[in-house]
């Protein structure tokens, strides 16, 4: 039996607000629980997270963002890039690649293993075993057990194999990153510019994807000069256009044919544009972490 707030009948008459304490306590409880679960608990768990250890080297990741790149983050915020660009890569799972690293001494046995256990439609030649190692012999095996079972066929033949952990997901398929983003990726970001809209591509790993500074500068000055029909707005006020003096400036943007200012003029990036590009180049999610494991590409 539920009683209305445990009140006696004669106390009820005056309407709902008579139950003030009950409402107050329920509201307080609801607030306290969410504060505990969404603010306090995460803060105690990852609030003081140290820099990540990578390959046994402590404090190796993420790389600090010194000087220009640090200022660039402010330019990024000030220009509202976050309204169209997220910085968080999603992942739905992992697959395994089997890589032949060393064919060993018994090449025919390895060749037999290749012909028996890989693509039945392909007849491998001895040169497939010896040339260009390490070589990925099987891609995207869905489970580790299956990949290990296959590796075993090759180790039994005296060869050596390596299992590569390959994260998969729609963002990764688009080339936006190598693995999912985790809290450690944002340790140098105050505030983390996660973003929620994806009018443009995710930028969490843009420094790895597009390392060229001139590409970024031209893209910011005139997006359609490098991306056909780009919907990104140009940021011309981050540049100055001036008459070419006695010698052309070394800093001037290099445009693809058919774009750029009229003849006799050159486009020079301001410090803000340069800082912004330094920041974009510093956005790299490239380390394998315990909480987001992957086989990192060779540096």
């Amino acid at each position: 039996m539920l009683r209305r707030g445990g009140l006696l009948p004669h106390q009820i008459g005056g309407g709902v607000m008579n139950r003030g304490p009950v409402i107050f306590f329920s509201a307080f409880l609801a607030f306290a629980i969410s504060f505990f679960a969404f603010v306090l608990l995460p803060q105690t768990q990852i609030g003081r997270q140290p820099l990540a250890t990578v390959d046994g080297v402590a404090n190796a990741y993420p790389a600090a963002r010194p000087g220009e790149a640090h200022q660039g983050a402010e330019i990024y915020r000030a220009n509202g890039c976050v309204t169209c660009h997220s910085q968080q890569i999603r992942q739905t799972g992992n697959v395994f690649d089997v890589v032949l690293t060393d064919a060993g001494t018994n090449l025919t046995a390895v060749l037999t293993a290749m012909n028996n256990h890989l693509n039945p439609a392909v007849e491998f030649a001895l040169t497939d075993v010896t040339n260009a190692l390490p070589k990925t012999i099987l891609k995207a095996v869905p489970t580790k057990a299956a990949a290990e079972a296959l590796s075993k066929k090759f180790t039994e033949a005296g060869a050596k194999t390596d299992l590569r952990v390959m994260p998969v997901g729609p963002d990764i398929a688009r080339g936006w990153g190598l693995r999912r983003s985790v809290a450690a990726d944002y340790l140098y970001d105050t505030p983390p510019l996660l973003g929620s809209q994806r009018v443009g591509p995710d930028l969490a790993n843009v420094g790895m994807r597009l390392p060229d500074a001139n590409w970024h500068l031209v893209h910011l000055y005139q997006p359609r000069a490098v991306v056909k029909d780009s919907a990104m707005p140009p940021y011309r006020y981050l540049f100055t256009t001036r008459k070419i003096g006695a010698t052309p400036s070394a800093d001037a943007l290099v445009f693809p044919a058919g774009f750029g200012p009229e003849a006799g003029y050159e486009v020079i990036p301001t410090d803000a544009a340069r800082a912004l590009v330094a920041y974009l180049q510093s956005l790299r999610v490239d380390a394998s972490l315990f909480e987001a494991p992957m086989t990192a590409p060779a540096k």
Binding site: D55, Q91, G93, T101, K144
Partner: peptide, 23 residues
Amino acid sequence: PQVYAPYRDLADLKTYQPSRGGD
């Protein structure tokens, strides 16, 4: 705090740790 989707728990996460080459 170390388990993110798509991993189920720490034990699951451990099976995905890459070997640093070799066995």
